[in-house]
């Protein structure tokens, strides 16, 4: 959005407000369909013995939540060593977005309250295009609370069978923690971005970010234990690379356990 629009809007011009709304709806720095796009893929592996996930203290709504084996999700390592729940996202400002992604973008991102935990544990959202749909599948009331920087704080009650829709007004530089004021053990993260270029590693540690613009891009790598995943190759959890058309495969990346300790 051009700054002139925002200034005029704040000063109270209705016409400028309309201009701002249309500016927000415009796709950013569109490239032609013929331009080349590339995928980035790789697999993160925990280079050590998978840590034991501690059982969490469940002392509220025990008659319902007490029957679940609720464990710490802050460091999830799969059977094959895959490091789960690592965010990899484009940090370069005003990155060009492939028109295909605009078209295929899903309408919403789902956060479910199920078995007295948040599911999934890590999410991302294209803030200007997707809504955040929050449901409660548990037989007890749930609460979803988060405070994104300079955005509206949320503190939503979800009765049994309840749902809610939330819109992030702006992108964030890092994932935002989500809490439940009723059940203190519950935790999750959501990353609102102004583009679709983000992946969260799956159970096997693999990730793919499709249709990135070719050329130099900077990525941020983030994990909840340490925030920025600082390694020898990724100082401050950052990686610059020149994307080529087609598949750019980083292969297997071993993450030493020390990189996940604060």
């Amino acid at each position: 959005m051009g700054n002139i629009n925002r200034r005029q809007f704040v000063a109270g011009s209705a016409a400028a407000a309309g201009a701002m709304a249309s500016a927000m709806a415009m796709p950013r720095t569109a490239r032609g369909a013929d331009d080349a796009w590339g995928d980035l893929k790789g697999r993160l592996v925990y280079d050590g013995e998978a840590p034991e996930r501690k059982k969490l203290v469940v002392d509220k709504d025990v008659e319902c939540c007490g029957k679940f084996d609720i464990r710490d999700e802050s460091l999830m390592v799969g059977e094959d060593g895959g490091l789960q729940n690592v965010y990899i996202y484009v940090r370069t400002k005003d990155v060009a977005v492939c028109p295909d992604l605009e078209k295929s973008c899903k309408e919403q991102v789902l956060l479910d309250n199920r078995d007295c935990i948040f599911m999934p544990h890590c999410m991302s959202i294209w803030a200007s295009k997707q809504k955040y749909y929050i449901v409660n599948s548990d037989p007890v009331a749930q609460n979803v609370a988060f405070t994104p920087l300079l955005d509206t704080p949320a503190n939503i009650i979800l009765p049994v069978g309840g749902d809610a829709t939330w819109h992030f007004k702006r992108a964030q530089r890092a994932p935002v923690p989500i809490a439940c004021n009723y059940h203190p053990w519950e935790s999750a993260y959501v990353l609102p971005l102004d583009h679709p270029y983000v992946a969260i590693t799956g159970k096997d540690g693999s990730f793919t970010i499709p249709k990135l613009p070719v050329g130099e891009l900077e990525f941020q790598i983030w994990h909840e234990r340490v925030t920025y995943l600082d390694t020898k190759d990724w100082p401050k959890g950052r990686m610059k690379m020149k994307l080529q058309a087609g598949v750019n495969d980083l292969g297997i990346i071993k993450i030493p356990p020390s990189a996940l300790e604060k």
Binding site: N143, A145, P153, N155, I156, I157, G162, D163, A164, H167
Partner: peptide, 20 residues
């Protein structure tokens, strides 16, 4: 409306949420 900045949530209907 709830009390902003505290655990006291909005119990009434809000845009996007029916409330309790």
């Amino acid at each position: 409306i709830g009390i902003k900045g505290t655990p006291m949530p909005a119990a009434g209907p809000q845009p996007g949420a029916k409330g309790v």
